[in-house]
């Protein structure tokens, strides 16, 4: 399908109104996503208020270096997808496709690094209900920390996986000239989704990896 012949559905006055409706809908969805992860963050906050030392101890068992690299990877991927939208707006199909492929590759790199983290935690016996071998005064509180850690990071990784698939589809469609300066709303919405996944991780990073590091 060529973007130049993309018809505006009859309920819209023009392509700008169509785009406004689509981005408004996407932002409403993103607000629900904020609250979806927000419930997990609220649970984290309450449990941390009740078990501050155990959460600091749990956080010290996470891999801070890998967490920092993962954050840098996601931040870079966010910039790459923002540049891909910019390129499409300027008519650069090849560069836009390359940027989308780079974003998807960075997303996959993130997932692989997280997989290594999960494996290390499995070996260390830090997975509640599956393999949890911690002893000591903080063992029970740390179990709550790791429950929240797995809920938050697994849901986040699920979002990254969906994002990578969407980015792959967008790269394919961009390469096949589905988007141009006049029509690129699906690409814009995918980029918004990817940025939100990045924002969630921006808050996961200090709450999971940086607690009690100075102690």
């Amino acid at each position: 399908m060529s973007a130049r012949t993309h018809p505006v559905p009859e309920q819209f006055d023009d392509p700008v109104q169509q785009r406004e409706a689509a981005t408004l809908g996407m932002w409403a969805f993103l607000a629900t996503e904020v609250l979806f992860f927000g419930v997990l963050f609220a649970g984290y906050t309450l449990c941390r208020v009740m078990f501050p030392e155990a959460f600091a101890e749990g956080s010290r068992h996470t891999d801070m270096l890998l967490g920092t690299i993962e954050t840098a990877v996601l931040l870079t991927s966010s910039c790459a997808v923002a540049l891909s939208v910019r390129e499409v707006q300027l008519g650069g199909r090849r560069a836009a496709t390359a940027m989308l492929a780079l974003t998807a590759a960075l997303g996959i790199a993130f997932l692989v690094m997280h997989g290594f983290e999960y494996y290390a935690e499995y070996r260390e016996g830090l997975i509640p209900a599956i393999r949890y071998t911690q002893q000591g005064v903080y063992a029970r509180g740390m179990e709550i920390f790791y429950c929240l850690y797995y809920f938050i990071t697994l849901f986040h990784s699920l979002h990254v996986t969906v994002g990578v698939l969407l980015l792959g589809v967008m790269a394919w469609r961009t390469w096949h000239r589905a988007f141009d300066q006049d029509y690129h709303t699906p690409l814009e919405l995918t980029a918004l989704y990817w940025h939100l996944v990045d924002i969630v991780w921006i808050f996961v990073y200090p709450l999971i990896y940086l607690v009690g590091r100075s102690g």
Binding site: W27, A31, V34, G38, A42
Partner: peptide, 12 residues
């Protein structure tokens, strides 16, 4: 709309 999501999270 964007601030609404974060505002409700703050309330929660």
């Amino acid at each position: 709309v964007a601030s609404t999501g974060f505002a409700w999270l703050a309330v929660l």
